[in-house]
Design a protein around this nucleic acid. Structure first.
Length: 271
DNA sequence: AGCGGAACCTGTCGGC
DNA sequence: TGCCGACAGGTTCCGC
């Protein structure tokens, strides 16, 4: 579910409420979301202080003291809820952290795809290590993107979804970025001109920035820390718009399958 | 290296 | 009304 703008929003809000707090303990309601064993997780977390929370791609990194890091991925339906103590357990609550000042941080996840892992350092996490560049890092330039695109042989949609290339893009933003850049999702990376790659670069940064400003996209499941919604769904131009008129040319938006996932695009505006 | 398919799990929606 | 299949913002594994 959450892509870079949603995770960015959640991390910002979590930092406002839990940074500096201590974890007194936790209650694991669904063990399968843990990567390690329950006892190791409970023992590793108890008594630690949450120093700060950072984002890397779609991962949340809770930096703890004494030194360790809790690595969280929300996958499709994971969300955090910040509560004053309450006995009301919601149907899909999977993990509850008891913090000082009598506060609870609840992890809720309908589909249980989300993951929690406790490590001494993020570098011990193979997938995190192999993650591609951050779109807002200094090193991400049109030139970098051009070399990256030309080093891979696949269609542009799969290229953008592959977290080893660029970290943080998902199905919604890839659709919106390709529409903005006027690139057909099936276009092969080898066929993209330098000019087109520059356009892709500008669209990518522009769409992600705008989505972050609007706190991400809430369609079905994504919610921010206090159950507020994002607002970027009001700005979507192709994602979920099959058969609706294209905002540029008026012709119907197409929907196809790529790698078992829906792709939305305008076959006239995207070449 | 890259691709398609299945799997992880739960819920919703549309068609018959 | 009820059942059944398709689909959902993600990722990994396996075989070709």
């Amino acid at each position: 579910m959450p892509e870079l703008p949603e995770v960015e929003t959640i991390v910002k809000e979590l930092n406002q409420v839990v940074a500096g707090k201590h974890i007194l303990g936790c209650e694991v309601l669904r063990e399968t979301i843990l990567q390690g064993t329950r006892p190791a997780f409970e023992a590793g977390i108890a008594g630690k202080k949450i120093v700060t929370i950072r984002r890397r791609g779609k991962y949340l990194l809770f930096h703890l003291f004494p030194k360790s890091v809790m690595i969280v991925h929300l996958r499709m339906t994971g969300k955090f809820v910040w509560l004053n103590p309450t006995s009301t357990h919601h149907p899909h609550d999977r993990l509850i952290f008891f913090l000082d000042e009598d506060k609870h941080l609840v992890y809720n996840d309908m589909r249980c795809f989300g993951t929690f892992e406790l490590l001494e350092s993020w570098e011990l996490h193979p997938t995190l290590r192999s993650l591609g560049i951050e779109p807002f890092s200094q090193a991400f330039t049109p030139r970098y993107l051009k070399q990256l695109v030309q080093s891979r042989k696949t269609n542009i949609k799969n290229f953008l979804l592959d977290q080893r290339n660029i970290a943080g893009l998902g199905n919604i933003y890839v659709a919106e970025i390709l529409f903005n850049a006027g690139i057909h999702p099936l276009k092969n990376t080898a066929e993209l001109s330098e000019k087109t790659i520059e356009k892709l670069y500008r669209s990518l940064v522009k769409i992600l920035n705008k989505a972050i400003v609007h706190n991400g996209t809430s369609i079905a499941n994504y919610q921010r820390v206090d159950s507020k919604s994002g607002e970027f769904q009001h700005f979507l131009k192709v994602y979920g718009k099959a058969n609706q008129p294209c905002q540029k040319c008026g012709r119907p938006i197409q929907r196809i399958k790529q790698n078992q996932r829906s792709t939305f695009f305008c076959q006239y505006c995207q070449r």
